[in-house]
Nucleic acid binder design. Structure first.
Lengths: 222, 222, 222, 222
DNA sequence: GATGAATGAGCATTCATTCAT
DNA sequence: GATGAATGAATGCTCATTCAT
């Protein structure tokens, strides 16, 4: 993909690391306000002025903590990623469950989490072009991949690294993309769970099949 | 999902049906110019003025054929959908191949098609908020679902309608979402094919598993 | 009143006098379409394109009979004036009735006529700036004044020309301005008649008073 | 009166209440510039850009104090109304004069006030369609009616409420409409005064006549 | 005569960001 | 540090009028 020309890739990290309680609180206020603006007005009405007003501060103050509009959105997304990432990590690495069980759990947790505050997530998604090319975004994707890669080492111990990489990619991308889509469509919770379950089944079938292929499976797999 | 307020859903269909050669050519010119603007400048610099200038016509003329900016983008997307839709339809309904074979073919074809003109597709995607809620977009999604539903009747003849619906949903959404993601990431063709193949395997494993469940499969499945 | 500078006073008379039946019909069609556009969309959406489309002809043809947009509006207004003018003339000059009776009749007729197709009249009024300064408009006003002046000769035979002129002005302007206002407010017919009646009374009282003043009124004045 | 469709009734009140001297000054500058633009170019060339430029500020600043173009015009008109309203109120309620005397004074004052800055008034009038339907406009009309209704209680104490309402309507509408017309025609001051005087006479004759009707007036009225 | 495509200046409004106070 | 007024480029869209066919 040739990236379009005139696309500036602005600084997204915070202008200053807020160490003092006051600053931390201010950043939190801004982010909370941003969430409200996004959910209330949609991505295309998300403006710094509105965020500042909602946060009860001045635009000037807002710009003291975020270098530009994109940075706010990115921070929101990053926090989101951090949370979800932690959740997925915990589930994927939980050796008390068999791999397929973990997958089921992960998909269900992810779908449910995506469907919370759906309108916010849709808005964040609409704003994605603003931060898509940021290095932090890439880092997030990489971290996700790592998590699934690690999981595949548990789930497909006999597979080659490349096989595992492909499986990790497929599972991760399917889950995240479909989760996003499901949240966007605003389906009812019961249906979301049904889809999550089906997707878990699909992943399980896929892993089983891979295991069969790799280790001829004298009697049966799993 | 509570929809954000101020989102208007404007008319997207063409202002006049161009019957004469001249008009048809003009519309084609506009669309071609739109593609170039989109690919060259990205969705966020896609303006009617730029499109008109690129097409070598006046804004006024542009507005004679498209009621608004969204309509141009939507038309681009619709043409895209029409093409891909036809392709998928042909493959999914091709009874000369077994269902799993068709799935493999479909995924590969879809991924490849998505990776052509990737930057255009990304830009179109970024513009999706502008036409997402249009009835035409819903119609497209519905048509896609129908195609896969029909396919599932071939592939899972013994399953209940609901099972088939869920399977169709999962497969369709996974494929389209991952295809989009893959195209966005700009992976090399070889890798794309590898992913397509893996995804085909995953779908195949899933359908096989469903068939086993449904018809206890005295001897073997498929 | 110093007239604003940049106000062009364009030609308002028809580009060609249509003598042939065909042309006459065309002009009639255009005018009828104009009325419909005006009433349907309001003055600020009155465009030549819309009129042409509503008339089922091309813009080009429209411009063959009217030099510009203003001319159409002016023509509408002029026709209107012609009609109402005839009506008023007939009533004001009707010697079979006493002057005050005529005034009552005139006011009632005028108010009723103003209230027909009120939305058209309002729209025409909104468009007045476009033709206000045209000589034809002045001519119309002058004709109206003449009519009332003539009437005053009947009603106030003993008054001086200047007194009559003032009385004519006052009566004419009150009637036309209030009529316009009443139509704009969309009052119910019964109320309109009541107002007309009251205004007729007012005019009658005024004329009586003037007569008393002028001819010392044998017994008592006032 | 069927109102035309697509007429939006936008917010007209100021975007922020200017408390600080600076802001107040800015608003004043904008209004003054607006007056100049209106008088200089006419209503149809009244644009926010021109106002801002004339005021020596940026469009953005203008929009910080007025939500839209209409609001500026409306504010001008409202200020106007406020002034004239106060004047009329004072005269109409002045019990040191007999009712007919007050009417004469009111008409003269109103006509004179209308003829000041006539070209501005005409322009404001031309712009009326932009704010005609606003609730504030209705409120103004209502206040005016109240003033005259109150006056009629003094002038026609024995009349029924309905009679008074009709008389108030007739007098108010005649005066305001004719005043507007007179100002628009740009007549010389002497003539304006003559008309005012005649109109005052007419109103006086009307009220006298009503009084006679109501209380058979044993000897003579007033 | 008729057509209707083409023009392009013009307009209202928004918004990210700065900087004097 | 905080404020918020000021900026002005940018955008989507309209419409009167012309003129080649």
């Amino acid at each position: 993909m040739t990236p379009p020309k005139n696309r500036r890739t602005p600084r997204l990290s915070s202008r200053k690391e807020p160490r003092q309680a006051r600053s931390t609180q201010l950043v939190a206020d801004i982010l909370e306000a941003a969430v409200r603006v996004l959910a209330r007005e949609g991505a295309h009405r998300f403006t710094t002025a509105r965020v500042a007003e909602t946060a009860g501060i001045s635009v000037g103050s807002l710009y003291q903590y975020f270098p530009n509009k994109e940075a706010i959105l990115f921070r929101l997304q990053a926090d989101e990623w951090r949370q979800t990432g932690g959740l997925l990590q915990a589930l994927l690495a939980d050796r008390s469950m068999p791999p397929t069980g973990r997958l089921h759990a992960v998909v269900q947790a992810f779908f449910r989490s995506e469907c919370e505050e759906a309108s916010l997530r849709v808005a964040l998604d609409d704003a994605a072009p603003l931060y898509r090319d940021a290095p932090e975004t890439q880092a997030h994707r990489k971290a996700g991949r790592q998590r699934f890669l690690q999981f595949m080492r548990d789930a497909l111990p006999a597979a080659t690294p490349r096989e595992r990489a492909v499986a990790a990619d497929i599972v991760m991308m399917s889950m995240s993309a479909v989760g996003k889509q499901v949240s966007e469509e605003g389906r009812p919770p019961a249906e979301v769970d049904r889809l999550a379950s089906a997707m878990g089944d699909m992943f399980a079938a896929y892993l089983d099949r891979m295991r069969e292929r790799v280790q001829p499976a004298p009697k049966r797999a799993i």
